[in-house]
Design a protein around this nucleic acid. Structure first.
Lengths: 225, 225
DNA sequence: ATGTGTGAATCGCTTCACAGCT
DNA sequence: AGCTGTGAAGCGATTCACACAT
């Protein structure tokens, strides 16, 4: 009722990162429910699936519009599409993976991404032994040309799957090419201009959080991830 | 000044997940600074490295004790060790990896983990072609025996690197073996008893957060990760 | 009857601001 | 003078509770 579906959000400033993470989860749960033939989903069903309160679900969704029907819940198909629109999954994204090691290899051709519109178009490495070789339908290109190639292919999202030492240099390259966002698997902070969004994926940090939880017998049932 | 370093935290309930993530980052920054020969670090130096305020740094640290010297800052070595103690990194952890695909393979023998006390002792898969083969010094074992083998090896942390469909079954196995924590790479929620801590590692969700940020031209400089 | 949408209340994290060491 | 440690203030996110729609 409040915002304007169909166009870009005007008040996205007040949408918290936590809300975004939850939207991703609602999206998955909806997919599973629809696959099972469910037509309608209530806020408390979604809430149970994520281990949160139903009020939270309704608040999250109401930030973007009123998608539900009082008395019956949310039409599952509709809601899933609305969330896809909110998250920008109703289009496809051009992705480049920098680094053809284990992580890079695991990422390309991972059905989960393709299915949601993330298409890996380019794969780079600096290892002469790898350059020119094919990995799962992609030819490994020389990282030295990353900036130009990414620009030509209009890459929007770059995934850094390189060692810590190489991360900032790789980031600088893809930033020059005009990417809008970077997902960084290197265990280090990278500096980017304001208009580029970065997210850090750091497995060591996740393990450390587990280590803390075990050590202090902490059962953080809230805000778990 | 408040808590009791040297033993388990009494009031760990009031430590937020955000604080834990930041402690992991302080820990990394301290490592880098010490490598450069720095003896003392101020709260604002740490703050700059993470892009947060110095008050935040001091609050975080003061939850666990007073480690700093007024006028000069925090002794880098000491502080790093204190944080190691807080995060439970002053000991070693026995880890099992379930799933010897790309992710599983990337995880074993990754120096970053070994260096922080996370030792991968067991690797499982259900693929007969892989069972018995060696991957980077570990022999792949049959996932059917995961519960027993993990119990024998006193595994404390299990990493699930299996497809979504196999995740809950794998989780049930390692829970039976008595693991305390699970890091789940499968893109799905898993049910665990209260005493087991779970963290979700979900690259698709990270990409979706980037997709949202690009779509809505949102530069979330706060709470980025 | 049931379940949404939402102001109001609450909770908890972050920032301010300053007293107190060194 | 410089920087920590910390109550108090501020602010953003979550939960409550209920009017309203079906």
């Amino acid at each position: 009722m409040k915002p304007t579906p169909g166009e870009t959000l005007r008040d996205s400033a007040k949408v918290s990162p936590s809300t975004i993470r939850r939207l991703s989860k609602y999206y998955r749960v909806l997919g599973e429910n629809i696959a099972k033939g469910t037509a309608s989903v209530s806020s408390s069903e979604l809430a149970n699936a994520l281990g949160i309160t139903s009020a939270q679900v309704r608040k999250d969704l109401s930030l973007f519009g009123s998608f539900g029907k009082r008395g019956s819940g949310y039409p599952a198909q509709d809601l899933k599409q609305k969330i896809a629109w909110i998250l920008g999954l109703d289009r496809s994204w051009s992705v480049a993976v920098i680094g053809a090691g284990n992580i890079g290899t695991a990422l390309i051709g991972y059905g989960e991404f393709e299915a949601h519109g993330f298409h890996v178009r380019l794969l780079f490495d600096n290892d002469p032994a790898k350059i020119g070789k094919k990995i799962k339908s992609l030819v490994v290109k020389d990282i030295a040309n990353a900036a130009d190639e990414c620009k030509n292919e209009k890459i929007e999202i770059a995934v850094l799957a390189v060692p810590r030492e190489a991360a900032q240099a790789a980031a600088d390259q893809v930033i020059r090419s005009g990417v809008r966002a970077i997902l960084n698997f290197a265990p280090c902070h990278i500096n980017v201009p304001q208009e580029v969004t970065v997210r850090q994926e750091n497995t060591a940090m996740e393990l450390e959080a587990l280590s803390f939880a075990i050590t202090h017998e902490l059962f953080h049932k809230k805000n778990e991830d």
